[in-house]
Amino acid sequence: MNTVDLRPATPDDLDFCFRLHQAAMGDYVAAVWGWDETAQRAYHRGKYRPHHWKIITVDGTDAGVLVVDHHATEDYLGLIELHPRYQGRGIGARILRSLLDAAARRGHDLVLDVLDVNPRARAFYLRHGFHEEGRHGENGHKIRMRAPLRTATTTATTPPRPDH
């Protein structure tokens, strides 16, 4: 089994995070908005907050990014992206279980948005107990999904708690 960890992002991770986003989400972004390299770099630079982002490492190699916002009654999974070479290996599921457990410890639901042009991600979240709440965004391209509060089930096989 791979060792999955989280490390704080740094300003030096900006380019890695952009290239990761392009590899993991580029086709979906292109399908909804079109991919304009200059506009995408500017958008990414504007939303990048290294003090708030976590880099997902697999066996010591940077493999993804995670952003979670903690609100009064729910946790919002703002971003979870794994490079395609790390997808389909159970890594995302391990991280998601850890996030669900952390939200449960706080008495929160876990909420996220998924693009409607990404049926693989939508199916992944449905398999993990999320349900669809509705659509929003321009042309309704985003689907709001929620996993209701559950009992924490953290085991030794889950990665470090993402709330640290």
Rank of each mutant, 00 (worst) to 15 (best):
M1H: 12
D5T: 15
R7F: 03
R7W: 06
P8K: 15
P8G: 14
T10H: 03
T10F: 01
L14C: 02
D15P: 01
C17D: 08
L20A: 04
Q22R: 14
G26A: 03
D27M: 01
Y28C: 01
V29A: 11
V29D: 13
A30H: 04
A30F: 00
A31Y: 02
A31M: 02
V32S: 03
W33A: 00
W35G: 01
D36W: 08
E37K: 06
E37D: 09
E37H: 07
T38R: 15
R41E: 10
A42M: 08
Y43Q: 04
Y43V: 00
Y43F: 03
Y43I: 00
R45W: 08
G46M: 06
K47I: 11
Y48R: 12
H51W: 12
H52A: 08
H52I: 07
I55S: 05
I56Q: 06
T57R: 02
V58R: 12
D59E: 05
G60H: 09
D62A: 15
D62G: 10
V65G: 10
V65C: 08
V65Y: 02
D69S: 03
D69A: 05
D69F: 08
D69G: 03
A72G: 02
T73Q: 13
E74C: 00
L79C: 07
I80G: 01
L82I: 04
P84R: 04
Y86I: 03
Y86C: 01
G88T: 02
G88D: 07
G90S: 07
G92A: 14
R94Y: 15
R97D: 08
R97S: 04
R97T: 02
L99V: 09
L99H: 13
L100T: 09
D101Y: 15
D101R: 15
A102D: 05
A102S: 11
A103P: 09
A104L: 09
R106M: 05
G107A: 06
L110V: 13
L112F: 13
L115T: 07
N118Q: 13
P119E: 03
A121N: 14
R122E: 13
F124N: 02
F124G: 04
Y125Q: 03
R127P: 08
R127E: 15
F130P: 07
H131F: 12
H131G: 11
E133H: 06
H136S: 13
H136T: 13
E138C: 06
E138R: 14
E138K: 14
E138Q: 14
N139G: 10
N139S: 14
G140Y: 05
K142E: 15
R146L: 11
A147V: 10
P148V: 07
P148H: 14
P148Q: 09
L149R: 12
T151F: 02
T151M: 05
T154D: 07
A156C: 13
T157A: 08
P159F: 14
P162V: 09
P162D: 12
H164G: 06
